[in-house]
Design a protein around this nucleic acid. Sequence first.
DNA 1: CGCAGCTTGACAATGGTTTTCGTTTTCTAC
DNA 2: GTAGAAAACGAAAACCATTGTCAAGCTGCG
Lengths: 142, 142
Amino acid sequence: MPEILRWHAQLSGAGVRATRKRVQVLEVLIAEPRPITARQLHAELLNRGEPIGLTTVYRAVSSLVDAGLVHAFTQAGEATYRVCGPTRHHHLICRSCGLVLEQTAEPRTDGFEVEAVYGVCAPCARRALPEQQRDQPHRPRP
Amino acid sequence: MPEILRWHAQLSGAGVRATRKRVQVLEVLIAEPRPITARQLHAELLNRGEPIGLTTVYRAVSSLVDAGLVHAFTQAGEATYRVCGPTRHHHLICRSCGLVLEQTAEPRTDGFEVEAVYGVCAPCARRALPEQQRDQPHRPRP
DNA sequence: CGCAGCTTGACAATGGTTTTCGTTTTCTAC
DNA sequence: GTAGAAAACGAAAACCATTGTCAAGCTGCG
Ligand SMILES: [Zn+2]
Ligand SMILES: [Zn+2]
Ligand SMILES: [Zn+2]
Ligand SMILES: [Zn+2]
């Protein structure tokens, strides 16, 4: 099934109309490999010459999340958004570089349904110095 | 080593003085099995008849996190805090009931250094209805 | 005592997100 | 196409957790 058809089907299936603005927001998200914030989304749309309000961007990503096309994360204290595939998965999210990997394997640690795993990816871990690693072990907003 | 001594040692080791207010904040956190927010911490201290400013609570938890006594999480869009053991570990955090489990095993998925795993714990997963599960898969702020 | 430096807290500022409310667009029925 | 209803849009204001400011209080040391 072509992706464009899946998007349309999922939107209407969730009772969300495929309006011009929502499609524009979705197009920016499709072009971005990493999660981006609502403000970045807004700036990119203005760059493309598409006038849109920041409020509308927030409502658009909310609709896209409701429809299951987009997944939301929390990075450095703010919400970020990225398009995701239709199959059940969870995420590995690097708090250093922002990389997000979709994982289809089910870890099922202690009967836990995993949704998101926050940590440091291998390249960032190699780059980090040992004392920095021990400095701020689990602070959510560095 | 008794815990009280470890706390004192870790505080001075991090250059953090064991002030009256900081100890009061730590005492509330020790009594709480689940992570709580700065505002809850503040309210509990006022309940106990300990006058303290909210700003001071924020600075106290920040110091305690710096000293490694307390770990910080993000739950429902706001920071929460809980005392943690001294051994290296990561966490399983249920986004439904707020339960936090310390995990000492290293999953090392794809060379990833795991810090926090967000998901739904087994009891909450059983309680949830199927359609609810699919509704909001990864929204950080429900 | 007297100073220096850390701590405290009332208040203001910040900044991401949501609400409000009036206007505009889109859908449906005729 | 036209009208009327429903949904979407956007500017501004409200919201709220968190942080900055700065003056007053406390602590340890000479
Ligand atoms: Zn996803
Ligand atoms: Zn990384
Ligand atoms: Zn911990
Ligand atoms: Zn739970």
